[in-house]
Design a protein around this nucleic acid. Structure first.
Lengths: 182, 182
DNA sequence: GATCACATGTAAGAAGTTACATGATTCT
DNA sequence: AGAATCATGTAACTTCTTACATGTGATC
């Protein structure tokens, strides 16, 4: 079962709400601030064709009178693959290098995962976040003195960012709990 | 003049302090938390060869008795190219999608750029950061209500992160000013 | 002498980038 | 009709990933 690219999952997720064309998808990706993903036709159209080839989406003949537009909708297999992707537990590696992907997964969870599963995502996230933050702080203790001034500033940018995310995760988790028993 | 890949600039920067082998570079990248960059041999060795081909680094014959190790050091052209890279002004696009690259540049500045130039980097950074944050907040005002709950959380993670970076940038800029007149 | 860590490399393939190409439809 | 925009696509190139290959010096 070939794992899809991030962009492919993004497209697959967008298609869950309604059938869309490649052009629609490009516009959405372009106008959505949370996606630093590619809106170039050279990325989107090949990704769509891969999804079709793998049976995760299927073209819908749009009888719409206007221009030719190939609308795509996820297949059952596509929905399953997407749900499986959302179910993946956040790893330390993702926390370190692919925070954007974690947030992309989170963004799509409502309506597909149950609240308890979203809570589990947050639990895992907090665990790995805390662990990584501890690593960073240990590194600062060991190496902080020897770092050039600007390197230290850059490092502190990272620290600051992760500390903010820890606070965000705690607050979000809290809010989830409240919403479930209002 | 072909612009190098990010990884190539990272290697070029590391070589500024002392001649290193590909293996050394891999170990440094692997053990340094601020780099989410690749430490795989399939990325590093080709990148080194590109740098050699472009005349930015040159091998040093290490007469060291031990194992064969190809040590590389930056050429004059390499130092110039690296300084030019550090001099690039932060763009909105980089603030949005390549924060890691901006921090990589910052990390290497001490000793190569003058304090006033580093201050300028921060000024530009604050400008683009403020601008982008305003964009995000405007987006939230417009679309916030219609966002699914988890999408909203993911969006807020971004907001939180950028707000933290704004504070970090302000504090860092402040510290720079102090350090210059102690 | 066998084995392990060091050190460098390559081959195949995935995926994205830039830039261009091509029609169709709507607008003026 | 001519221009602009919609909509899809392709070609060439770059870079990274994964996985394997190779040899050498150190270690037991």
């Amino acid at each position: 079962m070939p794992s899809e690219s991030i962009l492919a999952y993004l497209l697959l997720g967008l298609l869950h709400e309604q059938p869309l064309s490649g052009y629609d998808l490009r516009k959405i990706v372009l106008s959505t601030p949370m996606a630093q993903f590619s809106d170039s036709p050279g990325a989107i159209y090949p990704a769509l064709r891969r999804l079709v080839k793998n049976g995760l989406i299927a073209p819908e003949r749009a009888a719409r009178g206007g221009r030719r537009r190939a609308l795509f909708a996820p297949s059952r297999k596509g929905r399953e693959a997407f749900a499986a992707w959302l179910h993946r537990e956040p790893t330390r590696d993702e926390v370190m290098k692919r925070w954007d992907v974690l947030m992309l997964r989170l963004a799509f969870m409502t309506g597909i995962l149950r609240p308890a599963e979203i809570a589990r995502f947050f639990d895992r996230l907090q665990l790995e976040l805390d662990g990584y933050l501890a690593e960073l702080e240990a590194f600062l203790d060991r190496q902080g003195d020897q770092m050039p001034a600007s390197a230290r500033l850059a490092f502190e940018s990272g620290l600051t960012g992760y500390r903010a995310q820890v606070a965000w995760a705690r607050a979000s988790r809290q809010r989830l709990r409240k919403r479930r028993k209002p």
